[in-house]
Amino acid sequence: MDIKKREKNDITIFDIGGEIRRTDIAEATLHELVKDQLDLGKKHILLNFDKVEFIDSFGVGEILASYISTHNLGGHLKIARISKKLFLVFQITMLTKVLEIFDEEELALQSFLKE
């Protein structure tokens, strides 16, 4: 897994690449990275999955844990450009009802601005 951080209009964007799986844990997990940002007072998080090739349940768990942490602090965590396969999984698990998922990063950023 390869995670790069950037910021735009007070929104922290994590560009995630590669495979997010239990057997391939990086030095810092996605949740830890998000928590770091939350600790810094950055409560608008966007996860960009454009380069993600594979994600397993562990990866989904990381997303959910990040969502909970953000939500508990009154922040917002949004997702952009997830694969169709992951979208289907999110639909089956009803996570599409909880998570805000956007086809494009730009649309996600705009939604942050509206809030």
């Binding site: 397993d56 349940s57 768990g61 969502y67 909880v98």
Partner: peptide
């Protein structure tokens, strides 16, 4: 994958 997600503690909390 779906089964594992549904077993996640975080999933339970969110749902």
């Amino acid at each position: 994958c779906v089964r594992e997600i549904m077993e996640l503690e975080s999933y339970g909390q969110v749902m």
